[in-house]
Design a protein around this nucleic acid. Structure first.
Length: 280
DNA sequence: CGGCAAACCTGCGAGC
DNA sequence: TGCTCGCAGGTTTGCC
């Protein structure tokens, strides 16, 4: 489910109710998600105060007192929901329950269980296996055309695949890659290494714009995503190409009958949507 | 290094 | 109604 905008939406929603609060009790309702919970998961979290919530790519980082960090990944279908005491009955696939002071109950629900949670020392996060090889944050101030161009230089894979590669760029997923390439006018099949100079500059602008707009909309709710408050995101209504096979692309004067308008192709096993007339 | 298929797991909609 | 199939926002692993 979640790409950077959805994870950022979750981060903000949880930060609002959890920062500064003590976790009275944390319970894992099963032994594993994608991976087993770490040893003493519940005991190491219970009783600790939440300091801040951060995000790195699609990873949610919950910093707690005593320099402990809870690392959470939502996989495809994971979501956090906030309830006030008394909370409603547990639902199917509610796998982790956080009870915080002030009558706050947070639950992690994940039908497919591709998500995971782990604990690490806050000061050792840079060495954490799944974080240490991750690429630059697209919304950071120091991310720009030359940085992206350098990361793509010499690569022969399609630009679609490169942007999905979290070691090239952190946080992009299947939706926002298609949308950003459309905005930048770049074919998803273009060789990564040819995205240099102005093309890289334009792509960076497109990536930042689409991510910022999606965050402002609370993310995209296709099926699983909800803001922690329970509200739906609404950026799905702003998609130009994702899931719009056969439709005309917006703001494009391409000849729908001739180009077939928005096409869907498969790249590295995943759907890509694009306009062959506008994207080169 | 690159590319691809398969694996992990459940749910949903389409088609018969 | 019920079955099968294909598809789904992610990531890793193994193979060529």
């Amino acid at each position: 489910m979640p790409e950077l905008p959805e994870v950022e939406t979750v981060r903000r929603g949880l930060a609002e109710v959890l920062e500064g609060r003590r976790l009275d009790r944390v319970r894992a309702m099963r032994p594993d998600l994608r991976f087993p919970f770490p040893k003493d998961f519940e005991d190491r979290l219970s009783g600790r105060r939440v300091e801040t919530l951060a995000r790195r790519g699609k990873f949610l980082l919950i910093h707690l007192e005593d320099r402990l960090t809870l690392i959470a990944h939502l996989g495809m279908s994971g979501r956090f929901r906030i309830f006030k005491t008394p909370p409603p009955p547990l639902e199917r696939h509610d796998h982790v329950v956080f009870e915080a002071d002030g009558g706050i109950c947070v639950r992690f629900n994940d039908p497919r269980r591709f998500g995971f949670m782990d604990l690490a020392a806050t000061d050792a996060l840079a060495d954490y296996k799944m974080l240490k090889n991750i690429g630059p944050e697209p919304l950071a101030n120091d991310f720009n055309g030359p940085v992206l161009a350098a990361a793509l230089k010499g690569r022969t894979s399609p630009i679609k695949a490169a942007l999905l590669d979290q070691s090239v760029l952190a946080g992009m997923g299947n939706i926002y890659v298609s949308e950003a390439l459309f905005r930048a006018g770049l074919s998803p099949k273009r060789k990564s290494g040819t995205v240099q100079g102005d093309r890289a500059e334009k792509l960076v602008g497109a990536i930042r714009d689409v991510l910022n707009e999606a965050i402002a909309a609370g993310g995209s709710s296709l099926r699983d995503h909800r803001q922690p408050s329970g509200e739906l995101g609404y950026f799905q209504h702003s998609f130009a190409v994702y899931g719009r096979t056969g439709q005309a692309c917006p703001g494009c004067d391409c000849d729908t009958a001739r180009t077939g308008a928005i096409r869907r192709i498969t790249q590295s096993g995943r759907s890509t949507f694009y306009c062959a007339a506008k994207q080169r």
